[in-house]
Each structure stands twice: as C-alpha cells, then as structure tokens.
Amino acid sequence: MRKYVFSFLFIALSFVISLIALPYMPDQMAMHWNINGEADQFWNKSYAVFFGPLLMIVMLSLFVLLPKVDPKKENYKKFSGSYNIFVNMFIVFFFLLHIVTIGYNLGLDLDISLVVIIAVGLFFIILGNYMPRIKHNYFMGIRTPWTLANEKTWTKTHQLGGKMFVLAGVCMMLISFLPGLYKFIGLLIIIIFTLLISTISSYIYFNRYK
C-alpha cells in the first residue's frame, strides 16, 4: 500500500479541509451545476461536505482491488508504475473537484463548468501520455471486443488512443471558455469523436493482425 501514500495523504487532507469548512458551509450545499454553471442541486451540508473524501476512499479501494481480480492480473506488473501514477492522478482530480466545491459554497466567484472542463482536459492529456504503456487487461484502457481478443490490436489501439486522448484534452481546454451551451455541445462532440475513432481503429487493427 506504500505506493498509494500520495493518495492517502490527499484523502486525509480532504477530510481535514471538510472538518474545518463544515461550520462555514450553508445548510444546503450546492453539489451539481447545469451547463451554464448554475447550481441546480443542493444537499444537506452534514453529509455533502464529506461526499468528496468518501468518494475518493471508494475509488481508491476499487483501484487497489482491480489488479487482484483481473484475469490478466499478471500484466499489471508490466505497467505498475503507470497504473500507480494513474490512480494517484485520479485521486488528485477528485481532490481538486472537492476543493472547488468547498470554495464555491464558501461564496467564491467560481465558474464551475470552466474549472471542471479544464481539469478534465488536463486529465485526458496526462492519461493519453501514459496510455501506450497500459498492457492487456480487462478493466483499464480502451476495452472493445477487438482489443480484448488480441494483444497486438490492444497495443496499436492504445498507441493511437494515447494521441487521441491528448488531442481531446487540448480541445477540451480550448472550448472551456465558450458560453455554456456551446461548451456542452463541444464537449459531447470531442468525447464521441474520441470514442468512435478508438473503437473503429480497434476493429481495423484486429482485422489486420488476427
């Protein structure tokens, strides 16, 4: 578990921040925002303020469990460094979302949609750089019937997928400054295009290497 010390520290810090912020939170905390960045769902502060840290604990537990139950568990040893970086990066991502949520409910003037899309774009860029290192498995990466059926297809698809994710991340960061509706449409187009290219390429590679 020492490889996840970084994640544990951020989870512990998120709990400390929640405890400190709790007395200053409104009774009903904003927890969801529409495409225009306007809060449209509110939760009681007694559990809303701890939702982020608890979610991080659940996610980290899943990430620790997955390599133990995956039929391709031996392959995780081949990209353990990249996997650990991904896990820690994922926890940091949710930590940042938690901080932004706390800040918004403290009254800071934050454009939530701008912050979230920039964070997601940065997440895609980092993930794209590590994606070619991900070895054949059933839980992480571009999982289509064709990548799961053929390791060569998996490798070629993730080499292309890595570039696609980096490009998608850059595009997300660029559209984050657009008005709400255009930002939402742009995000959908980027995600759908990335998924389509990744899926179609895996089918093409499968037929080439089968």
Rank of each mutant, 00 (worst) to 15 (best):
P179A: 07
E151N: 13
W146K: 13
M164K: 00
K152P: 07
V170C: 02
T144P: 06
N150W: 01
K156W: 05
T157I: 01
T144L: 14
Q159V: 08
T144K: 10
K163R: 14
F184R: 02
L187G: 03
K183C: 08
I175K: 03
M172H: 07
H158W: 11
L188Q: 03
G161I: 10
I142N: 02
W146A: 06
G180L: 06
W154G: 05
N150Q: 12
F165C: 10
H158V: 13
F177L: 15
T155A: 14
T147S: 13
K163V: 10
W154K: 04
G186Q: 08
L178E: 11
F177T: 15
K156L: 14
I142G: 01
T155W: 08
I142T: 03
G169C: 06
L167N: 02
G180F: 13
I185A: 07
G169D: 09
N150A: 06
G161L: 08
W146T: 02
S176D: 01
K183G: 11
P145N: 14
V166L: 01
T147C: 13
C171R: 01
M164I: 15
G186L: 07
T144C: 04
W154R: 07
Y182F: 12
I175A: 01
G186D: 12
L178S: 13
I175N: 01
I175S: 01
V166G: 02
F165L: 15
Q159E: 15
I175L: 06
H158Q: 11
I142Q: 04
I189V: 15
P145Y: 14
L148D: 09
S176T: 05
V170D: 06
T153I: 10
Q159F: 10
I190A: 00
I175P: 00
G162Y: 09
G186S: 09
M172E: 03
W146V: 01
P145M: 13
L160Y: 04
T153N: 03
L188D: 08
G162V: 03
S176A: 15
F165R: 00
F184S: 10
K163L: 12
V166A: 02
A168Y: 03
M172C: 11
K163W: 11
P145G: 14
L148V: 14
L188A: 08
I175W: 04
W146C: 05
I142W: 09
F184H: 06
I175R: 03
P145I: 12
C171G: 00
G161T: 13
W154N: 09
W154T: 04
R143H: 09
V166Q: 02
I190L: 07
L178K: 04
C171K: 01
G161N: 11
Y182D: 14
T153Q: 06
I189E: 12
F165Y: 11
K152R: 15
S176G: 04
Y182N: 11
W154I: 04
A149R: 11
G161H: 07
V166P: 09
L188T: 04
I175D: 06
G169W: 08
K156M: 12
P179W: 03
A149W: 02
M173N: 13
T157V: 06
T157Q: 05
L181C: 00
G186V: 06
W146E: 05
I189C: 15
Y182W: 14
N150I: 09
G180P: 10
R143I: 04
L148N: 14
L174V: 15
L187S: 07
